[in-house]
Design a protein around this nucleic acid. Sequence first.
DNA 1: GTTAGCACTCAACACTAAAGAGTGCTAATA
DNA 2: TATTAGCACTCTTTAGTGTTGAGTGCTAAC
Lengths: 343, 343
Amino acid sequence: MELNDRKLKILQAIIQDYIQTAEPIGSRTLTKRYDLGVSPATIRNEMADLEELGFLMQPHTSAGRVPSDKAYRLYVDALMTKTKNTNYQKTFIKANLLKKFVEVERLLQYSSKVLSELTRYTSLALTPQIKGNKLKFLQLVPIDSENLVAIIVTDTGVIKKPLLKITGGFDEASIQKVSNLLNEKLAGLSIMDIESQLIQELNNEIYKCNNIIEKVVPELFQTLERLDDFELFLNGTTNIFNFPEFSDIFKAKSFLSMLEEKEVIKNLVSTSDNEGITISIGNENCYSEVKEYSLVTATFKISGSSIGWLSVIGPTRMDYANVINIMGQISKHINQLLKKGNE
Amino acid sequence: MELNDRKLKILQAIIQDYIQTAEPIGSRTLTKRYDLGVSPATIRNEMADLEELGFLMQPHTSAGRVPSDKAYRLYVDALMTKTKNTNYQKTFIKANLLKKFVEVERLLQYSSKVLSELTRYTSLALTPQIKGNKLKFLQLVPIDSENLVAIIVTDTGVIKKPLLKITGGFDEASIQKVSNLLNEKLAGLSIMDIESQLIQELNNEIYKCNNIIEKVVPELFQTLERLDDFELFLNGTTNIFNFPEFSDIFKAKSFLSMLEEKEVIKNLVSTSDNEGITISIGNENCYSEVKEYSLVTATFKISGSSIGWLSVIGPTRMDYANVINIMGQISKHINQLLKKGNE
DNA sequence: GTTAGCACTCAACACTAAAGAGTGCTAATA
DNA sequence: TATTAGCACTCTTTAGTGTTGAGTGCTAAC
């Protein structure tokens, strides 16, 4: 049995209808709503075939058919007709996206908001661990007699500003020296490498700056360790209440609880490694918590390493065409800003 | 008609029962569960009186009674028996609260998480606008040929690190001068005052630093404007699904949507101005969105000005005694850290 | 190969009846 | 005089029952 043109046409109609209505669709309704040129009985036979091929499922014997994950995959890869940018979208994006480059983190955070408002799904922004990033700049800024702020900038545009408390205090001149020394020694190294390499090198220089460095460096290590984490921003979480399948309180709870599992989300999203847009549908996701949802993820890179992700998450019957279109527009915008910021 | 001892005892029993079960309670069940020494008929008479006095309500004719906001207010002010710290709470707090002072923002954020986990309600942390705060420290740190990070520390321990892009670039020496000048001129001023005062004063000095200051200052102004915002952290939003009254999807949605109304939440929480714990119950809140919920808010101050709020938000039948107890423990901890951080 | 017709299935809905928890009122009681 | 037993009544909740409608697969005719 093969997927002939008619089968594809029927499948496409079912998927589009289900994405719109969330209702299982039967042969008769299908013929009424779509001009397929054949009778319900024929559709029934084709549907039975499509079910056997694994593209359709029946919630129960006398219900209509529902697309499977396999069907959505086929839809996304081959059947889907791309949507065009609407004027509304263009205007909204123009009005709400940041116009100049600021920190990557903020850039993604704002974009995520726009994304969720335009798609009406839940959106999330993720910035990566900085462990693999190279240090571009480091400076220690004394703010009072006992506290320093360490300004850390990576080559991917992430800025951190941890507070270091140096018990016993310090004198500003020494801090200045230490700061210059660290910046000089560490710039260009990946954060991961710093810890091992630093101790070696600094041991040789330590005499130059009396004992301040002995106080500052361990504190800085601990802080780097703590800083080294993903940041996750969620937007439009209550959008799921717009979808009838979440009018069941258990479904809604499970979705929202899943979003609170930050670790799962982080791992899930950060597996997307190709620059551009990735789609993972239902069971294609390797975490059981997410097997009922789909993700459309845009990965952003600067010189080869990932600097952030933007995702839309929703039911598998997501309006893929629309989401991909909007995601594409926003990605384009972000990439332009990134380019400018990196010139 | 007055509130005699028996009425109070009955009211207390009803409130406690309703906080536990969320079910309207009738006279017969009340006598079975609590040792009140009188028959259901007597209770019925007393209940009718309490309803007339505005302490009880009936969802419908043949249902039991439910406490009113007025009743909860009385309960919180007079009837409530304080709970004791459990060992579990002590251990949990010890294990999970930050042990040393870092930035105020982070301190509140972590505490909020602990708070929601211990109380099983939704918790939020709010840090204030910095407009009223005094600038303690300002430094411009060049990170490459076109970008600066402005390190801004206020007297309340808030640290900001906006990125400033100076089109056309700058030379480091000038920036150093400008930075020193700004720090010297502005330290001790409230952020609000800076804008007007700055322009005056700097106009006189402007010749000293060629045209760099003309590039940097407007950029800094814009940035200060943008930075001047509350920060809101939410924790345990899905905890509401634990409560039977939110098994109705509309209630759940309305609660979660209310939490997304950041402006409302901010205004609501930041009206608490007395150091220590404030409780506002249902209708006592001035925003219609929140009239069905209660808030227990702790306000934190340093030398008279508010530096943050920690709140628990939940149904009016909140377990006030327990929440207040836990909030008290956490507040105490935070205040100790604040003291240390400010020494 | 397609389709009309038919018997069958199942969820959803409306309706009904019974159970259960509650009330207020009245008259008896301590 | 305050308390309480008894009673009729109210209203929600729950379980059970039939009806409707959208769906199916199969068969025989076109």
